[in-house]
Design a protein around this nucleic acid. Structure first.
Lengths: 160, 160
DNA sequence: TTTTAGTTGACTAAAACAGTAGGTTATTGA
DNA sequence: TCAATAACCTACTGTTTTAGTCAACTAAAA
């Protein structure tokens, strides 16, 4: 499993989508604006995400993309694998033809590393990321409320 | 932390070095031949490894490279970080200037992912890889001996 | 039928990857 | 002292990936 910025873009975009899909299909133009990812690049990424059936598309006005499955069934690993297509892992592609009297030391190392990363990312769903995001939002709101209350008590006019 | 084949080359080369350094400095030419990595590419990689003080060099005939520290104190993470220089992690480089009213969702995700991978690779030392390699060798030798013994018992001439 | 928005393909600049070429310096040992 | 060895260094090459642009097209809604 390769780890580059491409995967991060895809995850960021999917998270944005997950956070907003309650209000119907989400347009790439919107994601592009909010997350500062070029529209055309998003088009490429979502082409792959659609082919891997992680998202569904709706054309025409009011259209956009929705998650093809519940957010709880979409993992970060799946997203990264979808866009980072050649998940080259051990050079010899799992086969042990990297031999030459030594049979490719580090083969086991990379296979194992790959597994660890994949397992970790397979355990993280979009649903969980959404929840964390909401949690963060909640904490922020709380601070604002406490701040307002404090100002009321100390006689200052509450800020709009 | 980025994960590409470059890091794998470096780890493979360092493992080769660790396995042979008992017999004095190891030449890049030797590593190049055994591991099928181009000599000039190795020179680039070892330039970085030397600057990060993971290896020491000895010039002149009989020279080569040695580990700068005991193999038990050199981790795979250190090797990868040494050659994959820009260990760009969260785009915003750890700072939270990726804000824009949302403060870069996925920031936490990537920081956390990065940590997981780094921690995993920090737990793997060259010494452990060397040990695993020896273990593998031992098993292979065992098989050969058993095979010879079997042939002796069944009357076949032992193979040279 | 015009607007919206996805779909596709070709193309591009810049960076990273992997390797090449050609030189220099330091050390050894003949 | 001189030749061989091997590290060291710089610049250059070709390929792939990254990130993005552009233009044409299709489906659906208003």
């Amino acid at each position: 499993m390769r780890l580059t910025t491409k995967g991060r873009f895809a995850v960021t975009a999917m998270l944005d989508l997950a956070l907003r899909q309650a209000g119907g299909p989400v347009t790439l133009a919107g994601i592009s604006e909010r997350q500062h990812i070029s529209l055309s690049y998003l088009e490429q990424l979502f082409g792959k995400l659609r082919r891997r059936e992680l998202v569904d598309s709706v054309r025409g006005p009011g259209g956009g993309y929705c998650l093809a499955r519940p957010a709880s069934e979409i993992t970060v690993a799946a997203i990264i694998c979808a866009v980072d297509e050649p998940l080259d892992a051990t050079q010899c592609g799992g086969k042990e033809n990297c031999l030459d009297d030594k049979r490719c030391m580090t083969h086991d190392l990379w296979a194992s590393l790959n597994r660890t990363i994949y397992d970790y990312l397979s355990g993280i769903t979009l649903a969980r990321l959404v929840e964390e995001q909401h949690e963060k939002q909640r904490r922020k709101t709380e601070c604002v409320l406490i701040d307002q209350r404090h100002k009321e008590l100390t006689g200052a006019a509450p800020t709009l």
